[in-house]
Design a protein around this nucleic acid. Structure first.
Length: 875
RNA sequence: GGGGGCAUAGCUCAGUUGGUUAGAGCGCAUGCUUCACAUGCAUGAGGUCACAGGUUCGAGUCCUGUUGUCCCCACCA
């Protein structure tokens, strides 16, 4: 038998055990036709990322499910990997180049990519090491990367197929442009916030008259690109104006006044400047009225040549000067403070400019519909199911997905243009000549794909798709995807439609959604606030097991949760308890030949704890199957702490310290049986400490990671006896409470008189009662009179307890307590009585419930009499 | 404008298809250096389950409304 150290210190073994698992290949996924597969795809963290609390929770949840299933005998694949995070990574490297005083342009594409790869090699693996600290049991041999050869091939194939089907197209449309990152973004990558701004009212003169029309704008600089002013056709104020021509101030361009339903008469002045190149609504108006589209901004957010004298100025500098000039021209009517929603780049937070640009798009409507249907038809299920609604909401209102990014780090768009005839070429293989004119002067599209284009293929690209590999055939579709609700639009949705489109199957059967991990005050953990708690620091201080447990207990699926160090501490304390309980069992088991519980004459306490164990097994297993991880953990903690440690271990002491060797062996058999089961039940939640203890248990046993998850066994559920035994526990609790209520010190043993019909139960467990209740003797009595004149008494489940009072008694307190107790009992009698008096209840409620209620009523009536007697005797 | 979450003990939160006397952790009070554990043990105080209706024999749980609060989406220039 291996020795356990006296104190629980996770540092002693967490790293060692993980290394051991790696060495033994315990996480390796195997295509085994004999077994049922179970597959989980890890959401690939960004190579730029550091492990944060959100990851820690996400990965912990996955690891729990995965370990549970592995122990249940499934052939488990937990596929790990990392994401190239095109924008984030490129941003980081550009930043570094800037520090070095250079730019990506001066470096050139090739050199830049070499640097990016080098960066990835150096830092991209960091988060992987952090995941290992957490205990993640994924198959690291299969570690994938969204830009590795396999995933890139899948991207190429997916793009090709979509292009061929006409679902990918290139077009000039309004997109979200980040002037800092200098790239287009998808709608999902723009975060809106209420920003304080201004409303400027400008006069635009009517050509050939003294009249003018006043418009309001929040972005004055865009006037440089105005090509019309629009009013509502129903607006009587402007009826005369429609069709007239205005002279755009500063620029001098002649622009028409058009009538369009889009204009809200009640807002602003009812006249709207139209800038088709820089506003999605204006763009639509422009299309309807065939207006010119004049883009006035460069990619970096400066004004371009269409801005005349403002060319070259930053957009905000231009704004300032234009307002000043309008004022000088006497065309500024007024300025109002105005807060409005402004879009920001979710990566760098720069204000987004909507602008017209030629980009690649995925046509969403034909893809969204089957993705909606799949969830409607329950092919994929959300847990909790309310997130299905959010998913529908997104897909039903989805617009085409802008997938091109003006970046270098990523999957280059697999499209070539013929320099001679202009043919656009998209093939599976890189083309060598133009299929139309035969020219060899082909230029590949400069842009990259949105990172999420490759993430969308993750569930099958990692398994070898488009090849029919044996992994793909065996592990796909995957079983459950675990991720946060904030990722639904970016990823879940896109994996769904991509999976259905490319593989004809939903990529996963379940989606387990969790919330955000917030700080102590409920704020989002963020870099800018500096309120993030580093999971690695928590691991350092309390161990990975404690961190894991603290992240899932008391958390309901899909809800946000707060992380506080107190939680980690509470978890550590609980784990410490398991540690010490195990030590207790092992110390006593030393040198003893431990029998199988099937060969043991089980005592009532044994049957009770074994039954409680069965109940725990059943509840935990059911909860885990429903992904109620928090409930499962709570049940388990409750069982281990309360039933096993507080009660059974204490109950076992008389036998262990008594002289009956056979009894001692039997008790040790049960102790070890329950401990063994408890460790296996706990292993998915706190893998390290359970593994460390498990290997110290006597006997030949395999590593806990591959041990069987305990199964509920009806034969080991002695329900009646277990229930009866609860009566004994109640007796002990009652005596303890009585002693406290009369200020009797715990060390002072009291003589207990008991009126009961459960004499046998009490006799068999007399040692335990004496020890746990702090009694010197338990006497059976026919009535309280045998206890003498001056007694305190209480009703418990199995009878009536009397304790003779010494001088210690506090009569007043006892009387007050009894009166309060009587009050409660009277309430219960009234409640149960009225329930039973209700014919409807008796007729309609389940029989068992009615019977229970009757029994209760009887019990309370009995208690009432006894309490009244007691009160009388106290007078 | 649309959608969603939350409101339960002093604090943070659980509460599985409606059904025992509504739970946990932390905190608090009192008492314990009992030979696994003071990272502990025992006992206890503390809740009109936001409010108002409704469905039901029965509602913390289901329905409707109200209030407060948080989030997501859309957006009037």
């Amino acid at each position: 038998m291996k020795e356990m150290k006296t104190t629980y210190d996770p540092k002693d073994f967490e790293d060692r055990i993980y290394a051991d698992w790696l060495a033994k290949g315990s996480f390796r996924a195997v295509v085994d036709p004999e077994k049922v597969p179970f597959t989980v795809m890890m959401p690939p963290p960004n190579i730029t990322g550091q492990l944060h609390m959100g990851h820690a929770m996400d990965e912990t949840m996955q690891d729990i499910v995965v370990r549970f299933k592995r122990m249940q005998g499934y052939s488990v694949l937990w596929q790990p990997g990392t994401d190239h995070a095109s924008l984030a990574t490129e941003h980081k490297i550009v930043e570094k180049l800037r520090e070095e005083g250079t730019t990506k342009e001066s470096l050139g594409r090739e050199a830049f990519l070499r640097r990016a790869w080098a960066w990835k090699e150096q830092y991209g693996g960091k988060i992987v090491e952090q995941l290992k600290k957490l205990g993640c049991s994924c198959d690291w041999d299969r570690l994938a990367f969204t830009m590795d050869e396999q995933c890139s091939r899948a991207v190429r194939e997916a793009f090709f197929r979509l292009y061929r089907k006409g679902l990918i197209y290139r077009g000039n449309r309004i997109i979200n442009w980040c002037p800092d990152c200098k790239t287009a973004l998808s709608d999902e990558e723009v975060a809106y916030s209420e920003d304080a701004g201004h409303f400027w009212y400008f006069k635009y003169p009517v050509e050939g008259s003294d009249g003018s029309v006043t418009i309001a704008t929040t972005r004055p600089e865009t006037m440089l690109g105005d090509t019309a002013v629009a009013v509502n056709p129903k607006d009587a104020r402007y009826r005369e104006l429609v069709g007239k021509t205005l002279v755009l101030p500063i620029v001098g361009r002649k622009i028409p006044v058009v009538a369009d339903e889009y204009v809200d008469m009640a807002f602003g002045t009812g006249a709207v400047k139209i800038t088709p190149a820089h506003d999605p609504n204006d763009f639509a108006v422009g299309l309807r009225h065939s207006l010119p589209v004049i883009r006035i901004l460069n990619d970096d957010g400066t004004v371009n040549e269409f801005g005349g004298k403002y060319a070259g100025l930053d957009r905000y500098e231009a704004r300032k000067r234009i307002v000043a000039e309008m004022e000088a021209l006497g065309l500024l009517v007024k300025t109002e403070a105005h807060t409005h929603n402004v879009g920001h780049c979710h990566r760098c937070n720069a204000v987004i400019e909507p602008l017209v640009s030629k980009q690649w798009f995925v046509k969403m409507e034909p893809l969204a519909k089957p993705a909606i249907d799949a969830v409607m038809k329950n092919k994929t299920k959300f847990t909790p199911d309310r997130f299905a609604k959010i998913y529908y909401n997104w897909l039903e209102n989805i617009r085409d997905w802008c997938i091109s990014r003006q970046l270098w780090w990523g999957h280059r768009i697999p499209v070539w243009y013929c320099a001679d005839c202009g043919e656009v070429i998209c093939e599976r293989e890189d083309p060598e000549a133009c299929p139309v004119c035969g020219s060899k002067r082909l230029e590949q599209d400069e842009d990259c794909l949105d990172t999420w284009f490759s993430s969308a293929l993750w569930p099958f690209s990692t398994l070898g798709w488009p090849d029919e590999t044996k992994e793909f055939g065996y592990f796909y579709p995957t079983d459950v995807l675990v991720t946060g609700y904030d990722i639904i639009p970016f990823w879940v949705m896109r994996m769904m439609f991509s999976g259905i489109e490319h593989t004809d199957k939903v990529p996963f059967r379940d989606v387990l959604i969790h919330g955000l991990v917030r700080d102590e005050q409920g704020r989002k953990m963020s870099k800018s606030l500096g309120n993030g708690i580093d999971p690695l620091e928590v691991i350092e201080k309390y161990g990975a097991d404690s961190l894991r447990l603290s992240l899932i207990t008391g958390v309901a699926p899909g809800n946000d949760t707060r992380f506080t160090e107190t939680k980690a501490e509470a978890s550590r304390n609980f784990i410490n308890k398991i540690w010490n309980a195990s030590r207790f069992v092992l110390m006593n088991a030393e040198g003893v030949e431990i029998p199988d519980i099937r060969d043991v004459r089980l005592q009532p306490a044994d049957r009770w704890i074994i039954s409680r164990l069965q109940a725990a097994i059943r509840e935990v297993t059911l909860s885990l199957q429903k992904y109620d991880l928090g409930i499962a953990a709570d049940n388990l903690i409750d069982f281990v702490r309360s039933d096993f440690c507080d009660w059974y271990i204490e109950l076992s002491k008389p036998a262990l310290y008594g002289g009956d060797a056979e009894k001692k062996r039997g008790t040790l058999g049960v102790l070890l049986f329950v401990l063994d089961n408890a460790l296996r039940l706990l292993h998915p939640f706190i893998p390290f400490v359970t593994a460390e203890i498990y290997r110290c248990l006597p006997g030949e046993r395999e590593d806990i990671i591959s041990a069987d998850y305990p199964r509920y066994n009806t034969k080991l559920s002695y329900r009646k006896e277990a229930k009866a035994f609860e009566g004994l526990i109640d007796l002990i609790k009652t005596v303890r409470a009585m002693k406290v209520s009369v200020n009797c010190p715990p060390s002072k043993k009291v003589r207990v008189y008991l009126v009961t019909e459960e004499k046998r139960l009490v006799c068999v467990n007399k040692g335990s009662v004496l020890r746990l209740a702090g009694a010197s003797e338990v006497e059976f009595a026919a009535s309280g009179a045998e206890a003498g004149e001056n007694t305190v008494s209480r009703v418990c489940e199995i009878g009536h307890v009397f304790i003779p009072l010494g001088e210690l008694v506090n009569l007043e307190e006892e009387r007050a307590r009894l009166e309060k107790e009587l009050d409660r009992v009277m309430n219960e009698i009234a409640r149960a009585g009225s329930k039973l008096a209700n014919n409807n209840f008796v007729a309609k409620a389940p029989k068992k419930l009615v019977e229970d209620e009757r029994a209760k009523l009887e019990k309370f009536l009995d208690m009432k009499i006894k309490i009244e007697e007691q009160l009388k005797s106290l007078r």
